[in-house]
Computed example of a mutant assay.
Amino acid sequence: MLEELVGAAVGVGVAGLAYVTAAARVVKQYERGVVFRLGRLRGNVRQPGFQLIVPAVDRLRKVNMQIVTMPVPAQEGITRDNVTVRVDAVVYFKVVDPAAAIINVEDYRFAVSQMAQTSLRSIIGKSDLDDLLSNREKLNQGLELMIDSPAVGWGVQIDRVEIKDVSLPDTMKRSMARQAEADRERRARVINADAELQASKKLAEAAHQMADAPSALQLRLLQTVMAVAAEKNSTLVLPIPVELLRFLERGAQHPDYQPVERSLEATQPAGEQSVEQ
């Protein structure tokens, strides 16, 4: 009799252990469990930790609650200003309602991927090339709203959307490079012209001051000679100021002006003049 009781107890223990083994489930910290009993949603979402279900009756599906990083395949499109571009992006999203993510959509990852691709093509068609290249933050916000609107019913929340790269045709790259080069050349010419204008104004002011003080021109000439001589050049070109030539011209036109040779002949004695003759 005792042996029968021991055998029954062992049998019950083994059956209980097998039942617990079949019914035990472990939900990780970043997961949530959704239980279906005979195909119908059962109770609340199971929290992380040790959980028990009814074997052969209940079915536990685990849903990852971590943020998912999903790259969006590159999409080709024509912008509003008729430029063919190729744009790829990346979507960050997470599940906020595990039951809705399992019941309302067949595969929420695939659904988010397809919605991101169609939204990206729509954004390309509505935007200009300059917006795609320089105003990405605004486009990212618009793309996020377009994806998040249907994703709310799937129990998914779009955390962030980023346009990763914009590829342009080689002809467009060369055209943009020529445009940038022309713009820089224009700015360089404007800066040079402005510098020439400022320099001419300063030179005009200096010329007026030198006209009031003629000795200043001689001092400036000496400074130029010193600057050239400091380079240890073998040839030195000494310019003659125009003012000096004008001074000599005014002296030649003066009635009291006499050449140097004639003044010397007038001062010599008559005997010496005859001897020379």
Rank of each mutant, 00 (worst) to 15 (best):
M1I: 06
L2P: 02
L2K: 07
V6W: 08
V6A: 11
A9N: 11
V10W: 08
V12S: 09
G13V: 02
A15Q: 05
A18H: 03
Y19H: 10
T21Q: 08
T21G: 11
R25F: 01
V26D: 01
V27C: 08
V27T: 06
Q29Y: 04
V45I: 05
V45W: 05
V45C: 08
V45L: 06
R46F: 07
Q51W: 02
Q51H: 10
A56S: 10
R59G: 04
R61C: 01
V63R: 03
N64G: 01
N64W: 06
N64D: 12
I67L: 07
V72P: 04
V72N: 04
V72S: 05
P73V: 06
Q75A: 15
G77F: 02
R80A: 13
R86H: 03
V87T: 12
V90K: 00
V90S: 09
Y92G: 08
K94H: 11
V95C: 07
V96A: 12
D97Q: 08
D97C: 07
A99F: 03
A100W: 03
I103C: 10
D107F: 04
F110V: 12
A111Y: 00
Q114M: 08
Q117K: 12
Q117I: 06
Q117T: 08
R121C: 03
R121G: 10
I124H: 03
D130A: 05
D130M: 00
D130N: 09
D130W: 02
D131K: 02
L133D: 00
S134H: 11
N135T: 01
R136Q: 15
R136L: 04
E137M: 09
G142R: 13
L143M: 13
E144S: 12
M146D: 08
I147P: 03
S149Y: 06
S149Q: 12
A151L: 04
V152E: 03
V156R: 00
Q157C: 05
D159V: 12
R160P: 04
R160A: 08
E162Q: 04
D165Q: 14
D165R: 15
D165S: 14
V166H: 00
S167F: 05
K173Y: 01
M176D: 02
E181H: 00
D183C: 07
R184C: 02
R186N: 13
R186H: 13
A188S: 12
I191V: 15
N192L: 12
D194A: 14
D194Y: 01
E196L: 15
L197V: 00
A199M: 11
K202N: 09
E205M: 10
Q209E: 12
Q209W: 10
A213M: 11
P214S: 07
L217P: 03
L219Q: 09
L221E: 06
L221T: 01
L221Y: 04
Q223A: 12
A230I: 11
A230T: 13
E231T: 15
N233I: 13
S234H: 11
T235I: 09
T235W: 07
L236H: 07
V237R: 04
L238W: 06
L238E: 09
P241E: 14
L245W: 06
R246G: 06
R250E: 11
G251V: 11
G251Y: 00
G251K: 15
A252I: 04
Q253D: 14
H254Q: 13
P255E: 09
Y257K: 07
Q258K: 15
S263N: 09
A266V: 11
A266I: 10
Q268Y: 13
A270C: 06
A270M: 13
G271E: 15
S274L: 14
V275N: 10
V275A: 13
Q277K: 15
Q277F: 14
